[in-house]
Design a binder for these strands. Sequence first.
DNA 1: CTTTAATCAGACAATAAAATCCGATTATAA
DNA 2: TTATAATCGGATTTTATTGTCTGATTAAAG
Lengths: 145, 145
Amino acid sequence: MTVIFSKKCEYGLQAILYLAANDNSDVVKSEEISHILNIPKEFISKILQSLTESGLVYSKKGKSGGFALAKAPNKIRLIDIVTAIDGMSMFNNCVLGFPHCSPDHPCPLHEQWGELRTKAYNMLTDETLDQLKEKTLKKIGHLKN
Amino acid sequence: MTVIFSKKCEYGLQAILYLAANDNSDVVKSEEISHILNIPKEFISKILQSLTESGLVYSKKGKSGGFALAKAPNKIRLIDIVTAIDGMSMFNNCVLGFPHCSPDHPCPLHEQWGELRTKAYNMLTDETLDQLKEKTLKKIGHLKN
DNA sequence: CTTTAATCAGACAATAAAATCCGATTATAA
DNA sequence: TTATAATCGGATTTTATTGTCTGATTAAAG
Ligand code: SF4
Ligand code: SF4
């Protein structure tokens, strides 16, 4: 079971955070991302390709090619990646899987879930990538070991 | 993508809520649950079978057989169903899929996610099935239409 | 200009989740 | 006692997700 996001999305988020943390360097090759984050090389490559189409990532071909953010880190939020990969369905659908969700026909968890959904959205929206950089570096430092 | 729970788990939760709402009647046959909740008959049957093994559901074989709660509705909480079907991994794992989660090596969303996780747990734990009955009946009433 | 090292693109394979099918079994009711 | 209607249990199919392979393409560097 996934926690909330698909593996694709989790990997995408991790990779984007890594790119933001390496903002100084030109481009990062997929092999490096694969190695550090423990993601199959071809898989993360594929995911970053799709994020390139979405305009979030810049990719450079040929020797000394790789990936980088397409925009300034203060212009990107985690929600952008989620939207591009998993879409917004988790913010519209019911935790219990009931159809026709609306305040008129609330399910037994309506209130609690509505609040959680909003907070989850804020969690992904409040900060931009540059604001997350410090914390990302700390976490990634421990992964290397 | 699933919101949080697998389809199996969503269906299980819905069915359990339905059984609790029909607490008066003896047993409910899988065909009825299937029809009302729009779940493949054989699928919900299988799920309720597994919940029977877990001791949450009582099943009666033969003609006029069906399913019912194995315990009093005030002894069952939604978390019990989640635990039985999806397990507790969502309450231990990282939203971002990072390994080795611990407060010492927090990921960038540590604080927010930790809070959400707790609230999600409470949402499934605070109320027992009998306390949810009223709201369930209201929701199911609208499904029938 | 040629070699090389990388992405790109898209087909392909493996695994997991969701749904279906069916024969065996069981218990009720006629 | 017999026919019936339901679950049980397991095999099977289908579909979605995850992961892998490979050849073409691209751009830098010698
Ligand atoms: S209103 Fe109720 S049914 Fe709809 S998503 Fe919220 S909790 Fe689920
Ligand atoms: S501590 Fe950080 S890494 Fe671990 S689950 Fe919480 S948010 Fe994720």
